[in-house]
């Protein structure tokens, strides 16, 4: 068998369709002819005549002339392939492509790295002052969320627990004393020297003298205050009681008694009879209770009348 006959029977040889004699002749020729032997190895896939680069170029040019580059399709599925969401056949095809395509392999590696690296970007530590700045920004808002009573209680507790509280009271007291006694225009500027002089002579009479000296300073302003507010108030209340007498006859007695008690109270206070003032106040409480009861009785009497009138109006409608 010559080379030409060998080549003509090559397809039948690969397909194992040669007769026994033809097969032996072909094998004899292949063993003696190097070119035909290499050709047989190439056809059987036992010999690769292309290097990797040439093979890739050949494949690329071939795909370009036929179906086009497979990278586009591969990259469509690359994320799903990295996530393991592709079906086995598709995954196998993408893996095969990635094995031979440098660009897609780089992208696939980057995608794998991104899936872990991106998570690490979720939290970034700000500087140490950040929390305190946020809290100072929201402090004013925080107060609105706390009820008023709780805020007052917290402020009071905070004030009480301050270590400087005693110092602050002492400072305020000194300031007041300086205002009252220590300045050239102070009302009691001569009192310390006099008090000191009296105390040195007779401590008991010193207190009495100080009280007598302070009396006009306290008594006259109180009297003026009473003239400007207390007396007009009583006059007004008496007028009001007169007007009220016609409307609420049951409360008049209680009201008159209250007026009497008020006068008694005023006299008791003016005469410094505090025990009597306290007793009068208790009596005034009783009068107020009686007044209130009278008002309630009046209302209860008026309410059914008003209700009846409304019902009558409704019936008319």
């Amino acid at each position: 068998m010559d080379c030409r006959a060998f080549e003509e029977r090559l397809d039948a040889l690969v397909a194992s369709q040669l007769s026994h004699d033809e097969l032996r002749a072909a094998e004899t020729h292949a063993s003696s002819c190097r070119r035909c032997r290499e050709l047989l190895e190439v056809v059987l896939g036992e010999r690769d005549v292309l290097d990797a680069t040439t093979r890739e170029h050949l494949l690329a040019s071939l795909l370009e002339r036929t179906a086009g580059s497979a990278c586009g399709r591969a990259r469509e599925q690359l994320c799903a392939w990295v996530d393991g969401e592709l079906q086995s056949t598709d995954a196998e095809l993408v893996a095969l492509h990635v094995d031979h395509c440098t660009g897609c392999a780089q992208l696939a590696s980057a995608l794998v790295a991104l899936s872990t690296d991106l998570v690490a970007l979720a939290e970034v530590e700000p500087d140490a002052k950040f929390v305190s700045d946020v809290l100072s920004e929201t402090r004013a808002l925080l107060a609105r969320r706390v009820p008023l009573s709780a805020r007052i209680r917290a402020t009071w507790e905070q004030l009480l627990h301050r270590p400087r509280l005693a110092w602050e009271f002492a400072t305020a007291g000194c300031f007041m004393l300086t205002l009252l006694c220590g300045l050239p225009f102070s009302p009691l500027r001569s009192m310390p020297q006099q008090a000191l002089a009296v105390i040195q002579v007779n401590p008991a009479s010193a207190i009495q003298a100080t009280a007598q000296r302070a009396q006009p300073l306290v008594k006259e302003p109180l009297r003026q205050a009473w003239r400007s507010t207390g007396a007009p108030l009583i006059t007004k209340s008496q007028r009001f009681a007169d007007a009220w007498e016609s409307e609420h006859p049951q409360s008049v007695a209680a009201w008159e008694s209250l007026g009497v008690r008020a006068r008694e109270l005023r006299e008791a206070v003016a005469g410094r009879n505090f025990a009597g003032a306290s007793f009068t106040l208790q009596q005034m409480g009783g009068d107020l209770q009686a007044l209130w009861n009278g008002l309630r009785v009046n209302r209860e009497v008026e309410a059914p009348q008003a209700g009846a009138a409304t019902t009558a109006e409704e019936e008319e409608r």
């Binding site: 990259r75 690359l78 992208l107 590696s109 991104l114």
Partner: peptide, 20 residues
């Protein structure tokens, strides 16, 4: 994700995926 991977590869000169 794919666009980000492209940008990262381009910026790192393909070192990013290879390092990983």
């Amino acid at each position: 994700r794919l666009e980000l991977a492209r940008k990262v590869v381009a910026l790192s000169g393909a070192r990013y995926g290879a390092e990983n």
